[in-house]
């Protein structure tokens, strides 16, 4: 993308403000939405604005990766919320806000804190000489001094992923998934009782 502060400062400023305001508005919509799916995708829109700002800062790789990851993340988040809430498929309207007082205090506090850092903080003013170098620098950083940290985190995450897939897989610990399976009983050699099955047992 050929958008950059060195080309047209005014253009970049206008774009920055549009993205920033758009991000905040979308973030506000997250709390006004009445459905889990809608809330998740408003959050994605907010992230998209942030990604745009990162692109403006020439952090192109970070901006694009943010977009790439968040597309999947938000969908998964919506799916998980739907799975955990008693709201069929997220289609019924529902109130997405609760614990109002705590939420408002935490939200306003975090916003003011970050805004204070942004306004009063001292940022180094180092003009970017070669924009194409940013991605390479990022790579050197990730695989240079910080390699140990990232590799540890990465391998741990991979192990978690493989573990959870093994649990959820077709041949999970409860037997083949498509034949129906039951969790083992709590006491060894006791009969399995599914939650809510007691009524059927009384009848039979």
């Amino acid at each position: 993308m050929t958008i950059g502060t060195d080309h047209a400062p005014l253009f970049a400023d206008v774009l920055f403000w549009m993205l920033a305001v758009g991000s905040v508005l979308a973030g506000w919509r997250v709390f006004r939405a009445d459905s889990m799916v809608r809330a998740a995708y408003w959050l994605l829109a907010s992230f998209a604005g942030t990604a745009g700002i990162l692109l403006l800062l020439h952090a192109r790789f970070l901006g694009l990766i943010l977009l790439l990851m968040m597309a999947g993340e938000m969908t998964i988040m919506a799916a998980f919320m739907v799975m955990f809430m008693m709201n069929p498929a997220g289609l019924n309207p529902m109130n997405m806000v609760h614990q109002h007082r705590t939420a408002i205090i935490a939200g306003v506090g975090a916003f003011l804190g970050l805004a204070a850092v942004g306004v009063f903080g001292e940022f180094p003013a180092r003009p970017l000489l070669d924009a194409s170098q940013v991605t390479a620098d990022l790579g050197v950083e990730l695989l240079g001094d910080s390699m140990m940290v990232f590799e540890t985190a990465g391998v741990a995450l991979l192990a978690t992923m493989i573990g959870s897939i093994a649990l959820a897989a077709h041949r999970g610990r409860f037997g083949p998934a498509d034949e129906g399976s039951e969790p083992p009983a709590l006491v060894p050699e006791a009969e399995t009782v599914r939650p809510g099955d007691s009524r059927d047992e009384e009848q039979s």
């Binding site: 999947g72 969908t75 498929a89």
Partner: peptide
């Protein structure tokens, strides 16, 4: 010719999931 073209392509294709999901979900 964008220096991070292939990442941009990947991001666009990741968002396809959002488009298809919304298309099916929003019909109720």
């Amino acid at each position: 010719d964008n220096a991070d073209g292939i990442v941009l392509f990947g991001a666009a294709m990741a968002l396809v999931m959002v488009a298809v999901f919304l298309h099916g979900w929003s019909a109720n």
